[in-house]
Computed example of a mutant assay.
Amino acid sequence: MRIDEMTLDQLLELNEAICQRTDELKEQENLQALSQLRVGLKVTFETREGPAFGIVTKINRKSVIVLAEDGTKQYKVSPELLKPLHEVK
């Protein structure tokens, strides 16, 4: 069936299914990202001002608190936006 042939009820039902699936996929992505993080881990992420570096201080269900490398700022970041920094030995 083509979308332009669907009734309003059919479109609303389709929209609900799409929103539910989108939420499920975002939750999976979030859980995967959270599994890679731990308190004390050095991370990097993008801000409006450019790349930022910091240390994970708290992990919540949907966000991570990161203390800026210089200790002047605290960021609340979505876990999927964080990239762990691996120190070179």
Rank of each mutant, 00 (worst) to 15 (best):
M1D: 06
R2I: 05
E5Y: 09
L8G: 08
D9I: 07
D9A: 13
D9H: 08
L11C: 10
L12R: 11
L12M: 15
E13I: 07
N15G: 06
I18N: 04
I18Q: 06
T22A: 14
T22S: 12
E24M: 10
E24L: 13
L25D: 05
L25H: 00
L25P: 00
Q28G: 11
E29C: 07
Q32E: 13
A33V: 07
A33L: 04
L34F: 10
L34S: 03
S35D: 14
Q36K: 08
R38S: 15
G40E: 12
L41S: 05
K42N: 11
K42H: 11
K42L: 08
K42Q: 15
V43M: 05
T44R: 00
F45C: 00
E46R: 14
T47I: 07
E49T: 11
G50I: 02
A52Q: 09
F53S: 03
G54W: 00
G54S: 04
I55Y: 00
T57V: 15
I59P: 03
I59V: 02
I59H: 07
N60P: 01
N60Q: 11
R61M: 11
K62N: 13
K62Y: 10
S63W: 00
V64N: 01
I65W: 02
I65Y: 01
V66E: 04
V66W: 01
L67Q: 14
L67N: 08
L67H: 03
L67K: 13
A68D: 14
E69S: 09
E69R: 00
E69Q: 12
G71S: 04
G71K: 05
T72C: 04
K73L: 10
Y75H: 15
Y75K: 12
V77P: 06
S78Y: 05
S78W: 04
P79F: 01
P79A: 00
L81Q: 12
L81A: 13
L81K: 13
K83V: 15
K83G: 04
K83H: 12
P84K: 00
L85N: 03
L85R: 00
H86M: 07
E87Q: 07
E87C: 06
